[in-house]
């Protein structure tokens, strides 16, 4: 029964993702390897709202500057550090302005970083571009988090 409920919840989440209600930042959602960071982020508004490349790239550049990662804008996925890749994925989600952004298992995105402070500092910088951002993590990683910002737990 639990399996069926989990499956239904998963399907509902997939449907929501498909409708653009939830943007996933996940280890399983890689960047386009043959596009630069800037192009990966700009692609979303360029495609979804039919902006010209220059307009979309301006938006993407603004977000990279806000996050403090503008130096990585020409890099492609294989050349990125874990932090740069995670930021690029997050900004790709942010630029679409979805109602919810789900950061899925950040320990897998940032294996060499004490990630809760890193993520919360990043989310604070991007606060005016975010609607609602949730972090989903394993229960055993909960002690890493500040008690004021507990993650959603994968049971």
């Amino acid at each position: 029964m639990a399996d069926a409920a989990q499956h239904l919840a998963f399907m509902a989440a997939q449907t929501a993702v498909a409708r653009g209600e939830i943007a996933l930042v996940s280890p399983e959602m890689p960047l386009r390897a043959n596009l630069s960071v800037l192009d990966n982020i700009a692609l979303i508004p360029q495609y979804r709202t039919n902006l010209t490349y220059d307009e979309a790239a301006d938006q993407a550049w603004g977000l990279l500057v806000t996050a403090g990662y503008q130096d990585s804008h020409t890099k492609r996925d294989p050349d990125l550090s874990h932090a740069e890749r995670c930021v690029a994925k997050l900004l790709r989600a942010v630029i679409g302005q979805p109602p919810i952004i789900l950061i899925d298992r950040p320990a897998m995105l940032l294996p060499d970083t004490h990630y809760p402070p890193f993520l919360f500092a990043l989310l604070e910088k991007l606060a005016e571009h975010l609607n609602n951002c949730e972090i989903v993590d394993y229960q055993w990683n909960q002690p890493l988090y500040d008690a004021r910002h507990p993650p959603s737990i994968i049971e």
């Binding site: 993702v17 498909a18 409708r19 653009g20 943007a23 996933l24 399983e28 959602m29 890689p30 960047l31 386009r32 390897a33 692609l43 979303i44 495609y47 979804r48 790709r92 989600a93 679409g96």
Partner: peptide
């Protein structure tokens, strides 16, 4: 093929592309 193997196609589709 590499896009399919790496999951880039699913990533784009999840971003409503």
């Amino acid at each position: 093929a590499l896009m399919k193997i790496n999951g880039e196609i699913e990533a784009l589709e999840s971003a409503c592309v």
